[in-house]
Design a protein around this nucleic acid. Sequence first.
DNA 1: ACTAAGATTGAGATATAATCTCAATGGAGA
DNA 2: TCTCCATTGAGATTATATCTCAATCTTAGT
Lengths: 145, 145
Amino acid sequence: MNSESLQFKNYIESKGLLFTPERQCVAEEVFASHNHMDAEELLKHLKSKGSKASRATVYRTLDLLVESGLVKKIDLGEGRLVYEHTAGHPHHDHLVCLKCGSVQEFEEPLIEQLQEWACEKANFKPTGHSLNIYGYCRGCTTGKR
Amino acid sequence: MNSESLQFKNYIESKGLLFTPERQCVAEEVFASHNHMDAEELLKHLKSKGSKASRATVYRTLDLLVESGLVKKIDLGEGRLVYEHTAGHPHHDHLVCLKCGSVQEFEEPLIEQLQEWACEKANFKPTGHSLNIYGYCRGCTTGKR
DNA sequence: ACTAAGATTGAGATATAATCTCAATGGAGA
DNA sequence: TCTCCATTGAGATTATATCTCAATCTTAGT
Ligand SMILES: [Mn+2]
Ligand SMILES: [Mn+2]
Ligand SMILES: [Zn+2]
Ligand SMILES: [Zn+2]
C-alpha cells in the first residue's frame, strides 16, 4: 500500500469509519494515475480490472477522498468533472483544448494574489476558485485550424 | 420591441432564419431581466406568463442568442449554467456564495492580462475563460458563520 | 392564389451524470 | 455469540439537456 493510501486509511479510521477493500481499491486506482480522471471512467476501469466496487461506492469514496484533502475535484466546464490527487501537486489552473479535449496545467501566482484582492474589495471570503481557459492547444494550432 | 431584440431579429434574419413569435418571446424575456437566469427558470417564467414556447424552443433560442453574441452562457460550477445579456455589460468574472447562492460580479483587468501571458507561455490560443471564486458573501459572513 | 420546399415547433422519448433507497451483508465490541 | 450499525450494490430516481419526428408555418415560384 502506497503512502497516499495509507494517509487515506488514517483519515478514514480517524473518523471512526472502516477502511474497506472497496474503499482501498478506489483510492489506489485514483492515486495510481497521474491524469485527471472522471468518476464514470474510474468505475469502468475498476470493473475491467475485476473489482466489484459499485457506482455508488465509487462516488461515495471519491467524496471521502475529497473530504480528506488527498484528492481534488476539478470542474473543467462543459460537464467535465474530474479528480486529481494533490500530493506533489501545488495549486494550478487549467487550459482546456476545445478541439482535442486535452488539459494542460499552469501556475500564475500573481493571478491568485489578484483574486484575493478582488475578494477583499467585495467583502467576500473566498474558500476556493475555478479558473479554466478554453482555446486551442499547441498541437491543435500548429497542424491546422 | 427593444434595441436588443431588434439586434437579435437582424441576426436571425441575416442568417436566413425566421424571427418567430416564440423566438421573440424568449429573447425579450432574457433581455428584460438583469439577473443571471438558467434555462429551466426561464421556461417556467415564460409558461407562467402564458407563453406556449416549449422547452426545446427555449433551449434552441438560447443557443441562437449566444451565437449572436447578445447573450453569454456562464458556467458557475456545481451544475449551475446561467445566461446573461452582454449589452452594457463588459467582461467580468463571478463570486459565488456557497451559503446563499448569490452571485456577485467583479472585474480585474490585470487578471485578464496575466491569463494572456500564461497562454503565450504554453503556446495555447485562448478563445475564452471561466473564473469563479467560491466562498461566503458579505451578508453571509457578517451575520454569522 | 396555389404549390412545393424547407424551416419551425411541441410533445414526448432519450441520454447522461449523479444521487438516493433499501434490503442484505459483515465487522466490532459487549 | 449477539447486537448494533456501518457499508454495500442493484436498481430506482432525479435533474438537466438534447433528440426525434409528425404537424404546422413561411416563403418563393408559378
Ligand atoms: Mn490539474
Ligand atoms: Mn455576470
Ligand atoms: Zn488540442
Ligand atoms: Zn451569501
